[in-house]
């Protein structure tokens, strides 16, 4: 399962300046690996180089220097078209088409037989809760619906590798949860998923590994526990009054530890939203 499907080494991308516009180094010596069965989070503030990296991996942009291997070949190799699913952070094409029609069209562009594309489109529309909007023109979609449709488009060919740029931006909590669950399911089926986002909490929840980009460089990377883990441990307890909690704190001190804080555990807002929607 830990087979490397995307490998990036020393990647640099520079945009030449023109006139009064200064040249920009968007990526500077980036190393990255993407493995089967893993969700990799690509984090960083705006302008850190996340989208540029995705564009290079999808073959949309040439690297200035460094080496990039996608599914054993160069980015943009036509043989990888159906093996690589990409969801750019851009508005959808052909906005006059309905969701089903758009997915079918995009499917045929990737070389899928028409009937297979139609069947896959119908399945994805159902999976991404877009059933009521199958025939509506895409231009009438809300941001969240368009985002979900974009993810469906990236998944049309059941690709081995998924590159998603801000997949949950504009989604309501239920939509986010749906997408996150789906990505975890895909990783469970051996797919490699790269999620670029600045929504730290979501990425943290679903990622096995993260890469943190800062000003075009990898600031830190690794498995979540390695990157974010501390020497502190949390214990969740219930059914204790304050006096008993105090006794536990005392026991911690006697054991040589140091109680840092009592924090009341909270439900996640997701749970509240689901509850409101009648999905406890």
């Amino acid at each position: 399962m830990d087979e490397v499907v995307i490998s990036v080494s020393g990647l640099c991308v520079r945009f030449a300046g023109r006139g009064s516009i200064e040249p920009v180094t968007a990526l500077d010596g980036v190393d990255l690996e993407l493995r089967r069965g893993e969700i990799t989070g690509l984090l960083g503030p705006n302008g850190s180089g996340k989208t540029t990296l995705l564009r290079v991996l999808s073959g949309d942009l040439a690297a200035t220097s460094g080496s990039v291997s996608v599914l054993g070949t160069h980015p943009g190799d036509p043989r990888t078209v159906s093996r690589l699913g990409v969801q750019p952070d851009a508005k959808l094409p052909f906005p006059h088409l309905g969701a089903a029609e758009l997915l079918e069209y995009l499917g045929t562009l990737t070389g899928m037989p028409r009937l297979a594309a139609r069947a896959k489109a119908a399945a994805l529309i159902e999976r991404l809760a877009l059933l009521g909007a199958g025939r509506r023109p895409v231009r009438t979609f809300s941001t969240g619906m368009a985002r979900r449709l974009g993810i469906a488009a990236a998944m049309l060919t059941d690709p081995e590798v998924l590159l998603l740029d801000e997949p949950t931006a504009g989604l309501d909590p239920n939509g986010s949860l749906l997408v996150c669950e789906m990505l975890q399911e895909l990783a469970g089926r051996g797919r490699a998923v790269l999620v670029a986002s600045h929504h730290l909490q979501e990425v943290e929840q679903i990622s096995d590994r993260i890469y943190l980009l800062h000003r075009g460089k990898v600031a830190t990377e690794g498995a979540l526990d390695d990157v974010l883990g501390t020497d502190q441990f949390e214990l969740l307890v219930s059914g204790l009054d304050e006096a008993r909690r105090e006794r536990i704190a005392q026991a911690v001190v006697e054991s040589g530890g140091k109680p840092e804080a009592w924090r009341r555990a909270r439900r996640h807002l997701f749970a509240l939203f689901r509850e409101l929607d009648g999905n406890p």
Binding site: R55, S58, L84, V86, K91, L92, P93, L106, L109
Partner: peptide
């Protein structure tokens, strides 16, 4: 208007630039 790859600067071209078929990319 129908085919986003006829000129530069179309945002939605990002969706089909990779999958557009043939030497003329559709």
């Amino acid at each position: 208007d129908e085919w986003p790859l006829f000129h530069r600067g179309r945002e939605d071209a990002a969706w089909i630039a990779r999958i557009a078929p043939g030497p003329w990319h559709g």
